[in-house]
């Protein structure tokens, strides 16, 4: 009987694959990796590419757009990114978020207006109370 290693491929949005394999091939940042059972503990970043899982009977392919690979003697965990990532891309997204916020608040005061916020909340609470009182009165 051949030795097997447990493989978990998860992304933030879903669990993609979980099962046993005889061999796993992954696109490590420093080069392609082949992981057999009882591999030494290893952590590496992954490049976009294909992860191949050889279960002995068949070979499964998963495309990932990067992520992190963790290897322990009997478990391989792939923490896959779902989005295509690059530093400048992240930066662009951050700027976009910032711009949105600025647009939304173009002409607002800079001090936190507790009094106003609390007044608003109190008003909402009073409305709710009034509604429930009206309902009881009927």
């Amino acid at each position: 009987m051949t030795m097997t290693i447990h493989v978990d491929i998860v992304s933030a949005e879903a669990s993609i694959y979980s099962g046993l394999a005889e061999m796993v091939y992954a696109p490590g940042e420093m080069g392609e990796l082949g992981i057999a059972p009882r591999h030494a503990p290893l952590v590496t970043r992954l490049k976009p590419g294909e992860i191949r899982v050889d279960t002995g009977k068949e070979e499964l392919d998963f495309f990932i757009s990067g992520g992190i690979l963790e290897v322990q003697p009997h478990v391989v965990t792939v923490l896959a990114d779902t989005a295509i990532r690059a530093d400048d891309l992240d930066e662009a997204k951050a700027l976009e978020a910032k711009k949105r916020a600025e647009d939304a608040l173009a002409d607002k005061a800079s001090d936190i207006d507790f009094a106003k916020a609390q007044a608003e909340l109190a008003e909402a609470a009073a409305q709710l109370q009034a509604i429930s009182r009206l309902r009881k009165a009927r």
Partner: peptide
């Protein structure tokens, strides 16, 4: 939340809706 922070004032760094 975006609307609420807008009414609240203060420093808002980013937003997504």
């Amino acid at each position: 939340g975006e609307g609420f922070l807008g009414r609240l004032g203060g420093e808002v760094l980013g937003s997504v809706t």
